[in-house]
Lab assay of single mutants.
Amino acid sequence: MEVRTIKVFTTVDNINLHTQVVDMSMTYGQQFGPTYLDGADVTKIKPHNSHEGKTFYVLPNDDTLRVEAFEYYHTTDPSFLGRYMSALNHTKKWKYPQVNGLTSIKWADNNCYLATALLTLQQIELKFNPPALQDAYYRARAGEAANFCALILAYCNKTVGELGDVRETMSYLFQHANLDSCKRVLNVVCKTCGQQQTTLKGVEAVMYMGTLSYEQFKKGVQIPCTCGKQATKYLVQQESPFVMMSAPPAQYELKHGTFTCASEYTGNYQCGHYKHITSKETLYCIDGALLTKSSEYKGPITDVFYKENSYTTTIK
């Protein structure tokens, strides 16, 4: 009895394709271990004539594949690729409408935090270190965002349907971005203890939790000093293409032309909904596939993004 075979390709990165001759009487799992086709788990399936010449994702289970996976995804987590594939199996079914010149995501599976993050990423200057993220990001900007969303979920250790947080998501993504040249110098002034300067680099240099107003941050924000008295913390120097200011959701007025974009969060910790506000020729609110415009805006804002380049204080 002759062994019926077909020729397929296996890959971990969709760049390096490895030619395989597979036995049609055995499952993919018996031949390769966990195997995925377009995100779908085909591990328990036997090869079919229609699979001839198709590319299958496999887990990096030998040295060659491990090197290829690390170079593309910059992670050695053995569960990463499987999590990416199972997320992709959902995100490829989502709709990605162009809204006001940006790629958004039609609401499904509690994905409003991903839509808000995706919209924000198209408006701030950011370059990702893992080629996987950078490639998928370019495709997302062009309207094909399924891979990018699935990668975000995998890097953030999230599953489809789980509630997510924009600030946490951005923080994970910033860790995989090139923020080497970003720098922030802060000064804390206390009447009792004097003053202390701190220099922050990388992710810490672009994120701040405690106030939404970048102007206020430049002037000074009140913080408790270690001595128990009130101290003032203010920005001395900022070198970065953008800054992200966050605070627990509270009524906040966004003035046209003073910011790049913002995240609105309605609801409580267990259950809520994100919308995205962007400042173009007027203010726009993007909620999944829905767009509304207004000249002014007041609502429960939790993150505001500002364009920056270089700032030095005039406070002496």
Score class of each variant (00 low, 15 high):
Tyr208Asn: 03
Tyr234Ile: 11
Gln270Asp: 15
Thr116Ile: 05
Tyr208Gly: 03
Asn14Lys: 00
Cys227Trp: 01
Asp77Tyr: 05
Lys95Leu: 12
Ser171Arg: 14
Gly220Ala: 05
Leu114Thr: 06
Ile315Glu: 15
Ala108Ser: 14
Asp38Lys: 10
Thr103Tyr: 10
Asp41Ser: 13
Lys201Glu: 11
Cys149Met: 12
His176Asp: 01
Gly29Cys: 09
Ile286Thr: 00
Gly299Val: 01
Gly288Phe: 01
Gln122Tyr: 06
Asn100His: 08
Val8Ser: 04
Met26Phe: 13
Met245Leu: 11
Tyr284Thr: 05
Tyr138Asp: 14
Lys275Phe: 08
Glu2His: 09
Asn268Met: 05
Met207Pro: 05
Leu126Val: 15
Ala177Asp: 01
Tyr96Glu: 01
Asp13His: 06
Gly164Asp: 05
Gly202Trp: 02
Lys44Asn: 12
Leu235Pro: 04
Leu65Trp: 08
Gln30Pro: 05
Ser50Ala: 14
Gln20Met: 10
Asn187Thr: 07
Gln237Leu: 12
Lys93Ile: 00
Lys201Pro: 02
Lys307Ser: 12
Thr43Ile: 04
Lys280Thr: 03
Leu291Gln: 01
Arg4Trp: 11
Leu17Asp: 13
Cys112Arg: 06
Tyr138Glu: 15
Leu163Trp: 07
Thr314Asn: 15
Ala154Asp: 04
Leu17Asn: 08
Thr292Arg: 07
Cys112Ile: 06
Gln216Ala: 13
Leu119Lys: 02
Gly228Lys: 03
Cys227Asn: 03
Ala205His: 01
Pro130Thr: 09
Phe148Gly: 04
Lys229Glu: 10
Gly82His: 14
Ala154Pro: 08
Pro131Leu: 05
Leu59Glu: 15
Lys219Gly: 07
Asn61Cys: 15
Thr103Val: 13
Ile286Pro: 03
Val12Leu: 08
Asn16Asp: 11
Leu114Ala: 05
Tyr297Asp: 01
Trp94Ala: 07
Trp107Asp: 00
Trp107Ala: 01
Phe56Cys: 09
Glu2Cys: 13
Arg83Thr: 02
Phe217Leu: 15
Asn49Arg: 13
Asp287Cys: 00
Leu133Gly: 04
Lys307Trp: 04
Tyr214Thr: 02
Glu168Met: 12
Ile315His: 15
Ala145Thr: 03
His48Pro: 12
Thr292Phe: 08
Ala87Val: 02
Val99Gln: 00
Val21Ser: 13
Tyr306Trp: 03
Gly220Ser: 04
Tyr36His: 10
Tyr269Gln: 15
Gly33Trp: 03
Thr211Lys: 03
Gln20Arg: 15
Ala231Lys: 04
Lys54Phe: 13
Thr312Met: 14
Lys201Arg: 14
Lys307Asn: 08
Thr11Pro: 06
Phe242Glu: 01
Asn110Met: 09
Val243Glu: 01
Tyr137Cys: 06
Ala247Thr: 02
Glu281Phe: 01
Ala142Asn: 14
Phe148His: 03
Ala115His: 06
Asp63Pro: 14
Arg4His: 14
Gly257Phe: 00
Ala132Tyr: 02
Ala154Glu: 03
Gly53Tyr: 11
Lys219Ser: 10
Ser171Val: 08
Ile45Val: 14
Thr192Leu: 10
Ser104Phe: 07
Phe70Ser: 09
Leu163Cys: 13
Lys191Val: 11
His276Trp: 12
Ser50Asp: 13
Val22Asp: 01
Asn111Trp: 03
Arg139Pro: 06
Phe32Leu: 14
Ile152Met: 11
Leu37Asn: 13
Lys229Ala: 14
Leu114Pro: 01
Thr91Gly: 04
Glu239Arg: 09
Glu52Tyr: 09
Cys182Phe: 05
Leu65Pro: 01
Pro300Phe: 12
Met207Cys: 10
Val67Ile: 15
Tyr214Pro: 05
Tyr36Asp: 06
Gly101Lys: 07
Gly228Met: 03
Cys156Ile: 09
His51Phe: 02
Gly220Tyr: 02
Asn129His: 11
Thr120Glu: 02
Arg4Pro: 13
Ile277Glu: 01
Val206Thr: 02
Gly194His: 05
Val58Cys: 14
Ser213Lys: 07
Tyr234Trp: 07
